[in-house]
Deep mutational scan, measured.
Amino acid sequence: MEVRTIKVFTTVDNINLHTQVVDMSMTYGQQFGPTYLDGADVTKIKPHNSHEGKTFYVLPNDDTLRVEAFEYYHTTDPSFLGRYMSALNHTKKWKYPQVNGLTSIKWADNNCYLATALLTLQQIELKFNPPALQDAYYRARAGEAANFCALILAYCNKTVGELGDVRETMSYLFQHANLDSCKRVLNVVCKTCGQQQTTLKGVEAVMYMGTLSYEQFKKGVQIPCTCGKQATKYLVQQESPFVMMSAPPAQYELKHGTFTCASEYTGNYQCGHYKHITSKETLYCIDGALLTKSSEYKGPITDVFYKENSYTTTIK
Rank of each mutant, 00 (worst) to 15 (best):
V3I: 12
A247Q: 10
T199K: 10
V221Y: 02
R141K: 15
T302K: 01
T19Y: 10
V42H: 09
P131F: 02
T211C: 12
K127H: 11
N49F: 10
R184V: 01
K219H: 05
K106P: 05
T27H: 09
Q196P: 02
V8S: 03
D38T: 09
V160Q: 07
N110D: 03
V189Y: 07
I301D: 01
N129E: 10
F259N: 08
E52C: 11
L200P: 02
D23K: 13
G53W: 12
L153W: 10
P60M: 08
P34E: 14
A262C: 03
N89H: 11
T278Q: 08
K229C: 05
E281H: 02
T10R: 12
H74Q: 11
Y297N: 06
F148E: 03
C271L: 13
V3T: 14
I6Y: 07
K7I: 07
M244A: 00
S79I: 06
K307N: 07
A154E: 04
P131K: 06
H74G: 12
F242V: 08
G101K: 11
L200S: 07
T292M: 09
A247L: 07
Y84T: 02
D62Q: 07
N89I: 12
L290P: 04
G82Y: 13
K44I: 15
I301A: 00
G202S: 03
E162Y: 00
Q195A: 13
L235G: 01
L81M: 11
I105F: 02
K293D: 07
F80H: 07
S50W: 12
T302V: 15
E52P: 04
S50F: 12
G161K: 03
V189G: 06
F128K: 02
V99G: 12
K275A: 15
T43R: 10
Q216F: 03
R66E: 02
N100C: 15
T313D: 14
T43Y: 10
C182E: 05
I6V: 12
G299F: 06
K280S: 12
Q122C: 04
A262R: 01
T258D: 12
Y265I: 04
E52F: 12
K219T: 10
M207N: 06
L118V: 09
A108P: 00
H90G: 13
T11S: 11
K298A: 15
G202P: 01
N16I: 00
V206K: 06
E215T: 07
Y113L: 02
K191R: 11
F9W: 11
E52H: 12
T198P: 02
A117N: 00
Q195W: 09
F70P: 06
L65Q: 15
N147V: 09
N309Q: 15
T199W: 01
Q30W: 15
F174W: 08
V21Y: 12
Q31H: 11
P131Y: 06
F9V: 11
Q123R: 04
E215A: 08
Q134I: 04
Y28D: 06
Y265N: 12
Y113K: 04
T75A: 12
L133K: 05
K191E: 15
G53N: 09
A117D: 03
N110P: 01
V243W: 02
Q222P: 14
Y172D: 08
Y57H: 14
L119P: 04
L119M: 06
P47C: 04
K7V: 07
K95Q: 14
N49Y: 11
E204L: 04
S50Q: 14
S50N: 13
E2K: 10
F128C: 08
T103N: 05
G272E: 00
T260E: 08
A145N: 01
I315D: 15
V206C: 01
K46E: 13
S279N: 10
H74C: 05
L283R: 01
S279V: 06
L235E: 01
K191G: 10
Y137N: 03
E239V: 11
S246Q: 07
Q270C: 14
V304K: 06
Y306M: 03
E215Q: 06
G33C: 02
Q196V: 09
A40G: 13
P78Q: 11
K307C: 09
F305Y: 03
L59Y: 15
G143M: 05
A289R: 04
G202N: 00
P34W: 15
G164D: 00
D38A: 11
Q134V: 10
G39I: 06
V304Y: 00
Y214H: 03
L163F: 15
E308K: 04
K106R: 00
T199E: 11
V304R: 05
E52N: 12
T312W: 08
G101Q: 07
F32S: 05
M26D: 12
L173C: 04
R139W: 09
T5F: 13
P60E: 06
G53F: 09
Q195E: 13
G257V: 06
Y138I: 14
V236F: 03
K183C: 08
E162C: 03
N16L: 08
L151R: 04
A205T: 02
T258M: 06
L121V: 11
S295N: 00
T64M: 13
S171M: 14
S279G: 09
K307E: 08
L151M: 06
I15M: 05
I152Y: 06
G202Q: 03
F128G: 01
Y252E: 04
F56A: 05
Y208G: 05
D303G: 06
N147P: 12
Y214M: 01
Y252I: 11
L151H: 02
K316E: 15
Y297D: 03
A87N: 14
T226K: 14
M207T: 11
H51F: 01
L114H: 07
S294C: 14
Y311G: 04
Y269P: 15
F9Y: 14
T169Y: 01
T266Q: 01
Y72F: 10
L163G: 14
Y208C: 06
N147K: 11
Y297Q: 03
Y311I: 07
E52R: 10
Q237D: 06
Q134Y: 05
F56S: 05
V221D: 02
Q237Y: 14
Q222S: 12
F259T: 01
K95W: 13
K158L: 06
T312A: 09
H18C: 10
Y96D: 07
S171H: 15
G220W: 01
K255E: 13
G194H: 00
G288W: 00
T260R: 05
R4M: 12
G101W: 00
M245H: 05
V99C: 10
R4T: 13
T64H: 11
S86Q: 13
L118R: 06
T55W: 09
G161W: 07
S295F: 05
Q270L: 11
K158C: 02
L81F: 10
L121G: 01
S246F: 02
M244L: 07
S104G: 13
Q123K: 01
E68Q: 09
P47F: 07
V8H: 02
M85P: 11
V160H: 07
P97W: 15
N49A: 13
T120K: 00
N111S: 02
E144H: 09
E144S: 12
V304I: 08
D287S: 00
V185F: 01
F80W: 05
T120S: 13
T55G: 08
K201L: 11
T159A: 14
I223A: 13
E281R: 06
P300Y: 14
E144I: 05
